[in-house]
């Protein structure tokens, strides 16, 4: 088991592993999305207060959860790369950054589209919305820093430090609605205790969440694979593999 993880640290083995896993993950993502959309848009009942507009939740909430989850993945990978100088960890961190930024943008825009009809405003500078916007800036900062520094090693280290420092924002986003009074309501789904949502609405939400998770796993591996192709193009194993697949 341990040696399996050890081998994954080598780009060569990781590439083969990703190649084998991506089709499986990709198809399960697609199937889960279809089930989740069917449940969320067709099976789930109307909300007693918000009518049909609440269906935005099936995009907004999974995207917001993923925006925080991906950040933690990115920071941990960056930290591992920083301490153990592991090439694969740097590749994971830099592959996660644009995906996290995409989830954050999706969460912010769908939140805005939901806030306008329900709250009466596209945007408000309350603690939840502001801290989520800061998360987007952290992702964009990571991406900008990486492209600004020529040397790969230095860039990875600088980005890892930025990612680790930014982790303090994650609990702030999560607890903002409890620590301060905000326009954004409190959490609906909590890990402990009963969630404040009817089961017929909760099941589609959890299905969509699973779909987003699978999607992230798929696209992370896809991006990592491209990154390996780019970084290892002069190695013998890469040349052999590419010429081998030709015949």
């Amino acid at each position: 088991m341990w040696s399996f993880f050890h081998r994954l640290a080598s780009p060569k083995h990781f590439y083969r592993f990703a190649d084998r896993l991506i089709p499986w993950l990709g198809w399960s993502t697609l199937i889960t999305f279809i089930i989740g959309l069917y449940l969320g848009l067709i099976v789930a009942p109307t909300d007693y207060q918000q009518g049909e507009s609440y269906r935005i939740i099936y995009i907004h909430v999974p995207a917001a959860w993923m925006s925080m989850f991906v950040y933690v993945v990115m920071a941990i990978a960056g930290g591992i790369g920083l301490i153990w100088k592991m090439k694969m960890a740097d590749i994971i961190a830099s592959s996660a950054a644009p995906l996290g930024a995409a989830f954050t943008i999706l969460a912010l825009v769908t939140g805005s589209l939901w806030g306008k009809p329900m709250w009466g405003t596209w945007w408000i500078w309350d603690a939840r919305l502001t801290s989520e916007l800061i998360l987007l800036f952290l992702y964009l900062g990571f991406i900008a820093l990486q492209s600004a520094i020529e040397d790969r090693r230095t860039a990875a280290n600088a980005c890892a430090i930025l990612a680790l420092v930014g982790v303090v924002n994650i609990p702030i986003i999560h607890y903002s609605v409890e620590w301060w009074n905000t326009l954004h309501q409190g959490p609906t789904v909590t890990r402990f205790g009963k969630s404040a949502m009817a089961t017929s609405m909760l099941i589609p939400l959890l299905t969509m969440f699973l779909a987003f998770k699978l999607y992230f796993a798929t696209t992370l591996l896809m991006r990592a694979r491209v990154e390996i192709l780019e970084r290892e193009r002069d190695t013998t194993w890469m040349k052999n593999m590419i010429m081998g697949s030709d015949e």
Binding site: L41, R55, I59, L113, W114
Partner: peptide, 13 residues
């Protein structure tokens, strides 16, 4: 029609 919220729900999706 999404109960009148089509212009918010469909752009989100």
């Amino acid at each position: 029609h999404m109960g009148g919220y089509a212009m918010y729900v469909w752009p989100s999706y």
